[in-house]
Structure formats: C-alpha cells, structure tokens
Nucleic acid binder design. Structure first.
Length: 866
RNA sequence: GCCGAAGUGGCGGAAUUGGUAGACGCGCCAGACUCAAAAUCUGGUGGACCUUGUGUCCGUGAGAGUUCGAUUCUCUCCUUCGGCACCA
C-alpha cells in the first residue's frame, strides 16, 4: 500500500485488472437468480455530463451490490446513436454524421471506463448500425402486415428550424423541445403506430407497476387521458342537401344534452365547408377555416388565447329536445379529439358559456344546484357541479349523476347514441423528414401504391455516401441512388420512402437487444430474453416519464402480440433520479459566466473581463447555456473517479435534485484520504490475524463497542441500499463507523483486539466497494485478501453482535424530555416505570401533582402525565 | 386553472412504524503542529435567557386540530419546483 492516496494510479490499475480478468462479462446461468440493471443509454453528444455521471453511478452501486448478493447481474451500456444533433454538427463542422457519431462514442466510452462502471462492454450496441436497425425495419413490416403501422395524411407539428415533424410530446408549450422555436402546422403524409389500440391496457397496467414512482404513473395516466361519456348523434334537418344526415359528438356530460343550444365543429372538420355551401355564410366560413389552418398550434394554446368562431349557416337538431340549434366552427374545437364536434352546453361548461356570451347564444339551464334556481340571464359563470335535472322532460327532478346513466340508456334504446370512452392519447407519428435515422422500409409504386420492402431485402441501408445540405434538410429525397428502386410487386421503376423513423423507436427495444446483441436471426434470441427480461431496475431522468417510457411499454405489447416475448411490462422497477444543479454566475455586461471568469475580491466577486460585480443567481439545472456546468474530466483529473462517485451519492438521495458543491467534493476527497492514512497505519498490525469471528460476550469495553458498531453499520448500509437506495445515509453510517475506528484506543493490545479491528477493516472495505470500487479493491488487497473484492459475498450482520445488554430509556413528563437512564436489556416494564418515577429530576417535575397516567414504550421511553 | 412533490441550523441533508429534532458532511470559531502558511490533528458550533446546569424556555413554511407525545397524521393557507392545460 502506497503511503499516499493516489487515485489516478490505483484507478487505472484496477480498471485494467477488471478488464484483463473479464469480470463484468456475463452469460445466462439458469441456476443462478438473474438481475437486470439498466440505465438509460446516452445520446453520443461528445462528452458525458454530470447528469450521466450521477445516473450511472447510482446504477453501478446497485449493480455491484446485487452482484455481491449473489445475483447474476446484467449491466449493459450502449448508444442511442441516431438523431438530429449529428446532422447539425456534420453541417457545422463539414463532416459526416456517422463519423461524428462514432468519434463521440469512442470519446464517451473512454470516459465511462474511467469512471469505473461495471458494464459488460461485450454487449455494447449503437442504434445507428445496420445490424441493429435492420430488426426494427423487420418489425415495422410485421406491424404493417397487422395494420399496427399505417399511413395517413395529417396535420403535424412542424418545426421550421429543424425542418422536421415533431410528435405532440415533443412540443412543449407550443415550442420545439429541441431548439425552442415556434412550431407550425403542416399537412403531410405520415406513418403512424397504432398506440391507441393499447390505450386501455396501458392505463390498466399503470396500476400494476408498484415499483414505479407514483409521479410517473400519474403523468402517464394523465397523458392517456381516459374519459367515460357518450357519443350522441345530432341529426341534420331534412332540408340539408349535402347527403349527410347527422353529426356525432362526444361528451362526458350527456346529462346536459337538453341544454345543448349550439354545436361547434373543429375548423378541419369535413362538414364545415360542406354544410356552409349555399347558405350565404360560405365565404365567411371558408375565410375563417383558412385563417385557422395557418394559425400556429402554439398560438392556439396560449393562455391569452381568445375563443373565436363563426356561424357556418347551417343548423342541426338536438336529438332530445327536437330543438333546432346553430352550428359554429371555432378555434377551440380539436379535430383530433373525440369526433371533432362539440355539443355546447353554455349553462354547464365554462368555455361554452364564454362563447355563448360573446356571440349572444341561448343559455338553457338543465341542472340546478340543490335548493336553488339558476337564471341564465344573470349567471356569471357556468355551473359545473352536481344538482337536480330541470328543463329535460322526463328526466326532470332526477339527480344529474343518475341522469348520466339514464340518458345514456335512453339514447342507446332510441338509437340516438351510445356509451363510449374517449382517450386523449393519439397514435404515434413516427415519420421524420431527417437523414440520420432508420429508413422506413417501404416503396412507393405508381401502379401498386405502397409496397413493403421484402424481408429478404432488409436492411434498407441508410446510405453513408451523402453530402449534408446546409439548409438542414434531409439529403435522402434528392439522392437518386437511394430513392430509385424497382417495385417488388410489378418490377417497374418505383421510389423508396425517404422518411426515417423517430429515434424513440430505437430506444423502445434496446433493452431486449442487450440480451443477445449479436443475434443475426432476429431482433433477439428468445431464450436470452426469457432469461434476462424484464429489466429488474431501470434508472434514468424523469424527463422521459412520458415519451420513452410509454413508447417502450407500447412496443413491448407489440412484441407480445407478435409472440416474440411473453411479458407486457419491460421495467419492473423504475428510479427517476433528480437533476444535477448549480448556482449561476452572471455579470450585467457579459451575461452568464464560467466560474473561472470570476475573481474573488474580498467579499465581492467580479467579472474578470469588465470588473463588474457578479450576480450569484438561482440554483438551476446544469446547462451549457447557463455556464453552470462542471466537466467530469476536470473532476477525474483532480480527484479521481471514486471521489466523484462518492460525492454524487452523498450529497442527496437519488430521487432528489443534487446541488453541486465544490467544497462538498473536497470533503469527500478528504474522507477518502483520512481513511487511506488510517489503513496505512493499521494494516501492518492486522494482516497477521484473522477477522474476529467469535462470540461478542467474550469482548468488552471499546473493543466490544467497535465490534457492535461494525455490525450495526453492516445492517444499516444493507437496508439503506436494499430497501431505499438511500446511499447518502449509507455513506453517513460508514463515516460514523470510521469515526469510531479512528478514535479507537484499545485498553489492552490482545489478539482479540486486533481481530476485531481486522474485522472492522475488512467489512469497511466490503461496504465501500459498490460506492468507491477502486479504493475498496486497494484496501482489500492491502489487508492481504486476494482480489477481486467484487467476487466476495456481501457481509451479513450478526444478530448476536447487535444485541444490546444496556438500553437507554428516556423519561418525559407531559411529553417533554426531562431525564434519561440506562438499564440492562432484560429488565421488566414495571421496574422501568418504578425507576423512572423514582428519578430525582423527575421527582422535581412531578412535585406533588397527581400522576394521571404512565405511558411506556418498550426499550425506549417512559412518559409521565401529571 | 387542474394534478403532484417539496419546505428542517449559515449550507447539503438525517430522524425508516407517531416516541431523545438537527445523524453525517460542508462552512465557521478556538486550539495543537509550523519561523510562517497550506495540509493534518483536537475541541466547539440551532436560537434566547440565566443561577453555567445531566439548566429553563423557544424552535422542523404559517395557522388550527387529533394525541400522553406530531418534522411524521387531519384540515386551511403561503412559497418553491415539476407535469398537464381549451381533451368537450
């Protein structure tokens, strides 16, 4: 053991030891319980950031811990390698997306290896490789066969700056999730996956994921957005000449149908233009529809957004009252939800109420609150609560909650509508007008239409000999050698689909691919998947709570439907770690500043460029734009991987945000140094003895205390890791144990004493090994144990060592702590009470007040109520 | 607006089932070592008060409640963060 702790030397040494001995490569071992630990794979952006470091450190602790607990642990790593940044970088640096991506992968792999993570690198995969995406194309063909993948022309969210379509989930408050610019509407032919077929099942199973955070489940449920209601058909008058006879609407408030005084259609609704023909309103209607088509979705969703609409000149009939009601088209009606038509009940829906007031439409009250009468003329807002039916014919007098069912039944009986369920969830649009993605394996033939690429022709290779276009557009449509092909059906000239798949498709099955990454007969080897899947513990950022996790759950259902897997849920347990945050520094003139652009001048901090005072801003998520980032490489150079890992785990429990603190990192480094020096001093004295393994009864004094502390710490660290993943308190416990060890002054230097110390030192190394693995290996070896520590079983705490013969009893008077005393563990309750009452200081508090009650909590506390 | 999470010393955080609030670390203060500094080591460190004690009182965002006893349970409110937001 070196005199000085030198992290760089020992970390490099152990990393190569692990690699040379192939310690992280795993295979299926049917007799041994498996544990699949997965962290969300990174996009190869060039460098790992602190978010990755935290995520992967948490995962590595669990992987190493489970391994020591005897599990056959699968812990893979790979690259989510398709995506737009590669194209942008390629244009900016005049390189190729593939080269940029593979260079980044090499750089990031080296960084991850430096962190000492226990990955089975033999399973590494990159989703941009043909041997990966070929199977995704294969499944696409299967999905197309089963009508799970289909094409339709639809309005899509279009980001003009990224030149691409975005999924609803990729639009955040009307802005592109990636570049933050406004999203517009555009009509394009798109490929879709029929996620909505599984809406019900995905929702149902949300409640069968006990290992997932409640927060994520709630978000998914809200996203799926199931509403129970009715579809009601509103007839069109016989006089209408379009040939259409009715307009179906979806409502959750069929009890209020008699209060429906107008109808609202989405501007894109096919009946809008048709019905307005020849009514004199056609010009105004068409003008409105056109204006709405150009209006950005972002404007529509703004808070200040004004409800706006026009009368289309036609009317329909309220099926229950027989009343003729006007049809409007308005900007708040969505074509994608329900039937694209709304029955408007202004008395009982706030949005309809505002619209009715704005356009002077009738308001009819059909639900009165108990004991009250609403007057449409004086109402100031819609009444949406429960009440008693009025103005509804035979349903009058009925509680509206009962009318919900009764009216639904009435509608069904009279063939006017039916009970139904509507979902907020839309089908997954997977077409991207991008180059750097998996080609959709379809061919467009003038004669035969859409024809799938035959299975034997897979993969449809993404051509790598392309020139990236500076405008950011995909080069594929203009690449003759790619688009030009022959129709597999008729043999005539045809052209390929030039859209590529959303990269969320790749990340929806990579965890299955890891089970047999080299498999060339299918997506994966079914036996390997049967052994490893599902993932026992998945760890990643909460930003993927909806997108990636819902898609993966869906895709797994597709695989099950195809008979490829026999489970529905891919991730048994999910941990979403908090963000890594740090304060921002900024100066009035130069904006955000890096820490080394700031100099400390006494109490003040100044900008080195202009000398202005620096504002210390809020603690925010680390981001390049705010310059509040910490480069993992700098930490590795200065402190090494173990200190970096230690701080990430110690500063906060994993699900919470972590506030970066340079001083905190330093504290971790000092702890490791103290520990190192302690081992340097003690190792020579204990290598000759075996760890203490006898009965604690034969020990006493400080020696016994140390032995007990060792076992208490084993128990505490084990439960903190096993039950809660609270590594911060596990580390605290180890620090406490170390404080005990370093203050250890044995009364006599007997062999027992050395054996107890040896036991403490061995166990400390074992407890530390998932957290600071290189450091622990070094301690382990210095104690004369054979490497590797990660092959050792996790220590067990002994019940007899934990037994206490002395207990501290706390005495309260009226719930306030007044005194305490020690008793032997075998004392009976009555004696404890007597002792408490007899206590001098307690007597002082009791005086001669009568004792009402004495409460005793076994082995802990006595409370005397006076 | 709706849904959810969080609020504890100067700071990060602990208190796992209603039972000693503030573990552990950072920072700060004092001392030791040193010509000196750094590093290291030792001790102290929620606030107020006094009679300096194993002292009294206050103290977990605010206010109420349940309880012998509440950081923990219930209600109301405030603040911060996250998600959703014309979904009929």
């Amino acid at each position: 053991m070196e005199q000085r702790y030198n992290p760089q030397t020992i970390e490099a040494r152990w990393q190569s030891f692990w690699e040379e001995n192939d310690l992280f490569t795993v295979t299926e071992k049917p007799g041994i319980p498996k544990y699949y630990l997965l962290e969300m794979f990174p996009y190869p952006s060039g460098k790992i950031h602190m978010g990755h470091v935290r995520n992967y450190t948490i995962g590595d602790v669990v992987a190493r811990y489970k391994r020591m607990r005897g599990f056959n642990v699968l812990h893979p790593m790979g690259w989510d390698a398709f995506g737009m940044p590669a194209e942008n970088a390629a244009i900016a640096n005049n390189t190729h997306p593939a080269k940029w991506t593979y260079d980044n992968i090499d750089a990031m792999r080296a960084q991850l290896k430096q962190m000492g993570f226990s990955y089975d690198w033999s399973r590494e995969l990159a989703t941009c490789k043909p041997e990966y995406y070929r199977w995704e194309q294969w499944l696409f063909l299967k999905m197309y066969e089963k009508k799970m993948a289909y094409r339709k022309e639809s309005f899509v969210n279009w980001c003009n700056s990224c030149q691409t379509v975005l999924a609803n989930e990729q639009v955040e408050a009307g802005m592109c999730w990636r570049c933050g610019r406004l999203v517009r509407q555009k009509k394009l032919w798109q490929w879709f996956f029929k996620v909505t077929d599984y809406a019900e099942d995905l929702l149902l199973y949300s409640d069968r994921l006990p290992g997932w955070p409640e927060k994520v489940i709630t978000m998914q449920k809200n996203w799926i957005g199931r509403s129970i209601g009715a579809e009601i058909r509103f007839p069109l008058p016989k006089s209408n000449r379009t040939g259409d006879t009715e307009i179906p609407v979806f409502t959750t408030r069929q009890d209020t149908v008699c209060g429906a005084t107008f109808m609202v259609l989405a501007p894109e609704h096919p009946l809008v233009l048709k019905l307005s023909q020849g009514t004199g309103q056609e010009k105004e209607t068409a003008g409105f529809v056109e204006r709405m088509a150009l209006q950005d979705r972002s404007v529509r969703s703004l808070e200040s957004f004004d409800k706006e609409g026009v009368y289309i000149g036609a009317d329909c009939i309220n099926p229950l009252t027989g009343r003729k009601i006007p049809i409007y088209t308005a900007n708040f009606a969505l074509m994608e939800y329900g039937t694209g038509a709304v029955m408007s009940v202004p008395a009982h829906d706030q949005r309809d109420f505002e619209f009715a007031r704005k356009y002077g439409l009738d308001i009819v009250v059909v639900v009165d609150p108990a004991g009250e009468h609403l007057d449409p003329a004086t109402m100031e807002e819609a009444y949406t609560g429960e009440g008693i039916m009025v103005n509804s014919g035979e349903f009058d007098g009925m509680p509206n909650v009962d009318a919900l069912d009764e009216i639904a039944r009435y509608l069904e009986k009279n063939d006017l509508g039916k009970k139904t369920v509507s979902f907020r969830l839309r089908d997954w649009g997977i077409s991207r007008q991008r180059y750097w993605g998996a080609p959709i394996p379809m061919i467009h033939c003038e004669g035969c239409g859409i024809v799938p690429v035959p299975e034997k022709d897979l993969p449809v290779m993404l051509p790598e000999d392309v020139e990236m276009l500076s405008g950011g557009k995909s080069p594929l449509p203009s690449l003759e050698s790619f688009t030009s092909t022959v129709c597999p059906n008729c043999g005539k000239r045809a052209h390929r689909e030039t859209n590529t798949m959303d990269t969320f498709v790749e990340s929806s099955w990579y965890f299955e691919r890891y089970c047999s990454p080299a498999c060339d007969r299918g997506m994966f080897d079914p036996q390997a998947v049967a052994y490893w899947m599902p993932v026992d513990q998945y760890i990643g950022g909460v930003e993927h709570a909806i997108l990636h996790l819902l898609y993966s759950r869906y895709y797994t259902r597709v695989l099950k439907e195809m008979g490829l897997v026999d489970f529905k849920e891919p991730f048994t347990r999910l941990l979403t770690q908090g963000m890594v945050c740090k304060e921002t520094l900024s100066c009035a003139e130069h904006g955000f500043l890096l820490p080394d652009e700031v100099q400390t001048d006494g109490e003040l901090r100044r900008c080195i460029k202009c000398g202005n005072q620096v504002t210390v801003g809020r603690i925010e998520k680390m981001s390049k734009s705010k310059k509040n980032v910490v480069d993992p490489n700098v930490l590795l150079d200065k402190y090494g991987a173990d200190t970096t890992r230690l701080f990430c785990l110690f500063a906060a429990p994993p699900e919470r945000d972590l506030e970066w603190s340079e001083q905190g990192v330093d504290g971790g480094y000092r702890f490791l140094n103290r520990l190192w020096r302690f081992y340097v001093d003690w190792v020579q004295h204990v290598t000759a003895v075996k760890p203490f393994n006898g009965s604690p009864e034969s020990l006493d004094g400080a020696v016994k205390e140390l032995y007990r502390k060792t076992h208490q710490t084993i128990a505490k660290v084990t439960s903190d890791i096993e039950d809660r993943y609270h590594f911060n308190t596990a580390i605290s416990a180890i620090m406490e144990m170390f404080n005990r060890m370093s203050g250890f002054e044995p009364d006599d230097p007997m062999e027992d004493t050395l054996m107890v110390m040896r036991c403490a030192m061995d166990n400390m190394a074992l407890l530390l090994s998932p957290i600071v693995p290189h450091f622990a290996e070094e301690l382990w070896q210095a104690l004369g144990n054979p490497p590797s520590i990660l092959e050792m079983p996790w220590p067990e705490s002994s019940a007899t060592a934990l037994e206490k013969e002395e207990l501290l009893i706390v005495i309260q008077v009226n719930g306030k702590l007044r005194s305490r005393f020690s008793v032997s563990a075998d004392i009976d309750d009555e004696t404890v009470k007597e002792k408490a009452l007899a206590d001098e200081r307690i007597q002082k508090f009791i005086n001669d007040k009568p004792i009402k009650k004495v409460i005793l909590v076994k082995n802990k506390l006595v409370n005397i109520v006076v």
